[in-house]
Design a protein around this nucleic acid. Sequence first.
DNA 1: TCAATATTGTTAGGCACCATAATATAAACA
DNA 2: TGTTTATATTATGGTGCCTAACAATATTGA
Lengths: 167, 167
Amino acid sequence: MLLLKELPTAKSLEKFAARYPGTNVRAISDFVSLLRASADISQALDKLLAKHGLLQGRWWILVLLMRQDDLTSSPTDLAAKAGVTKASITGFIDGLEREGLVIRLPDPIDRRKYLIRLTAAGLQKLDETIPDYNSKVDALMSSLGEQERDEMLRSLKTLTANLELMR
Amino acid sequence: MLLLKELPTAKSLEKFAARYPGTNVRAISDFVSLLRASADISQALDKLLAKHGLLQGRWWILVLLMRQDDLTSSPTDLAAKAGVTKASITGFIDGLEREGLVIRLPDPIDRRKYLIRLTAAGLQKLDETIPDYNSKVDALMSSLGEQERDEMLRSLKTLTANLELMR
DNA sequence: TCAATATTGTTAGGCACCATAATATAAACA
DNA sequence: TGTTTATATTATGGTGCCTAACAATATTGA
């Protein structure tokens, strides 16, 4: 996601509106601000994870595995939960396996399948990363009061529920 | 940005908290929801732009050019405004120039420089895309009341102002 | 004036993240 | 049994970034 540093100025928005009559300048400006905030937050997470040698893609896979009682899942299941194709999961697993954070085990029941399991090293990586993640996320989110946070999330949920309007 | 479909359940958050005492479950849950909403919104923009044969990276470059009075800018300037390196800008320009939306002109004054100018085709592409963009963004943002929107953006601004807490 | 320094843009090379299509293997079904 | 379906991988490629090295040009200042 391109991190547009320069949000539109009032002047450039006016220019915009002049060429495209009926422009809702407020809506555009607010939307760009929203995207910009999103990008900033995501980038901050990238940096936090990078301190621990992780990247968002791999991080979420590890987190999905840790959610399982046996620390194990299948590529197909991970693909569904992560919202990407199975082919993409293969790539993530390759990287994680190369780093020893995960292993592929043949499924004893269905020989087409693999079980992807978090290794001890993988769990250790999480044990190293998560306390930092927890405390930083807590610190960040605490900059908003409970009610303010609720309202923000409610608003975001309203927006995402209406995303079909973008089609 | 990986679009984690499956937000943490109450149960998995409890498990999380059991292994990592002191976890602020609310903070984590809220943070993930926020990331998820961001990803959804960004993806919706991707789809809107894709209808017009554009992608976010190139889109923002075109928008930056359109903001200029003479529809012209330099790679260095674009890099600063877009928040990426000059080498990345070269790539964007290559793509846009290949599609005829932009041209590289030698700077008559400084022979190290190029002027990147929106072509007629580039402007036409914007004329085709922007009304759609405007109306869709307006529709989406209108799903929130004025005050609700203000509050949401204020909250996001507070968060981004506190991102150094993530370091 | 001219040598050192700074700036501009590109190239080369690389990594992460994603997709689609084709393939091989195995399971399930009828 | 034979066909369909499911699983995972490979191959290939696009987009969005980066750093490092480079060539060309401009600026500065002794």
